[in-house]
Design a protein around this nucleic acid. Structure first.
Lengths: 229, 229
DNA sequence: TGACGGTTCAAACACTTGTTTTATACAGGC
DNA sequence: GCCTGTATAAAACAAGTGTTTGAACCGTCA
């Protein structure tokens, strides 16, 4: 499994091109497998999905995972890679409140991108795939998880640090900034990471989401400003 | 596995008593297995531990799990049960700041119990077992997880709600109180639930922990008070 | 002492899971 | 036509996993 090299000989040279059959009506098997794997890995995590689950869901043969991706782990890596790629749009949007936004407006925009999004929107769903994958990585770490932190989370923390620094007028220690970032990001992450912990499971109404966003923004602004003195 | 009844016939009547051998030098096999299982489940979660792992660690035979506990799932349940029991001391302490403590002092005491504890203390280690178990439950839910939320988390949220209500002077809506509780508890939980996300992995010094506690308290007090207006 | 009963052990069983193999189908180049 | 390379299918393989079995061990007590 993950962390071990493929057992015997790995098909180093991936099937170069071709997909002759796929030119016709149906989606290429490779894509169907990738799609099913994305859905299932997000639902259950790496270990709790079998290649048979994936291939059944994709109406493909058991061997197709190994044929098209080498092994289960590389399929997982490709799923994560695609999710990270698809998330770029989300991240760009969350970290772009407009050219002349104040620090307060940036913070509100950032929080809203995380908590206030209609869960049925396309970006929200793509973002939620990565979030689910990440959630599973927390308790079931694979070497892939580090890449997710590095590419998806770290940039946001840096962006948030800029906002906080700006709010504090540059008069705070690095440690204070780090703690404020942690406090804010915790509020953005935990409710979605552990919905069960807060009875957040039922999907909230748009109005309720908006009140939640306003709460987190107000709470955090007050918290940060208190640290200024 | 979990969620399914035992396959053939389960030893309904647990081995009544006895443990004749254990009266002597060594710890009873049952206890060794329970201890090893606690450690391993906390480390890796239910599915990623095999009964052979447990029995090896406990220097016991493979059959001992099924003999003493019926099956792997019931062993897990007993581990969680013990952890919940052991945690009671921690919870009592976290939710008892002394007879005449102010709401502010209660909050500080509560936060310190969660974030500011020397990770090597006995209570902290017992609490961390349950936290680890819970962390795994987040991404790999078993029927046992609900009990953990109900018995370990819900009471704390209620206690925190009392503090917040007191801080707000009873002049806030239930929703506001709920959101404040969420904001505070998020800060108490996430850093320990997802240390990798915040570079919190290296154990912090006592002084650093103390500063973190003070930050969370100040940040949260300011946040709550802001919601009062 | 010898039957009894709780306990332990090595081995086996039944099943799952990732992977490999072997065979077949099919399109394009010779 | 044949040959080659790609793609899919069915079956098999090897390792791992939860569980069961049947014998052996060892105090206890009639």
């Amino acid at each position: 499994m993950i962390g071990h090299a493929a057992r015997r000989r790995s098909p180093e040279r991936a099937p170069t091109r071709g997909a002759v059959r796929a030119a016709r009506g149906d989606v290429a098997t490779r894509n169907r497998v990738l799609g099913a794997a994305t859905r299932l890995f997000a639902e259950r995590g790496f270990r709790r999905v079998t290649v048979r689950d994936i291939c059944d869901a994709a109406s493909a043969n058991v061997a197709s995972v190994n044929y098209h991706f080498g092994d289960k782990e590389r399929l997982y890596r490709e799923v994560v890679e695609s999710a990270l790629e698809a998330l770029r749009g989300f991240a760009d949007q969350a970290m772009n409140a407009g050219p002349d936004a104040s620090a307060e407006q940036k913070l509100e925009h950032y929080v809203r991108a995380h908590l206030g999004r209609d869960p049925n929107s396309a970006t929200a769903r793509r973002a939620s795939v990565l979030r689910e994958l990440f959630r599973h990585e927390l308790s079931e770490p694979t070497p892939v998880g580090a890449a997710m932190v590095e590419r998806a989370l770290k940039p946001r923390l840096r962006y948030l640090a800029e906002i906080v620094q700006s709010l504090l007028g540059g008069r705070a220690s690095d440690e204070t900034v780090r703690y404020c970032v942690m406090s804010i990001q915790s509020q953005c992450l935990l409710p979605v990471a552990a919905p069960v912990a807060f009875d957040m499971a039922p999907l909230r109404s748009r109005a309720e989401l908006e009140r939640l966003v306003r709460h987190v923004v107000a709470f955090s602004l007050a918290g940060v400003r208190d640290r200024m003195r």
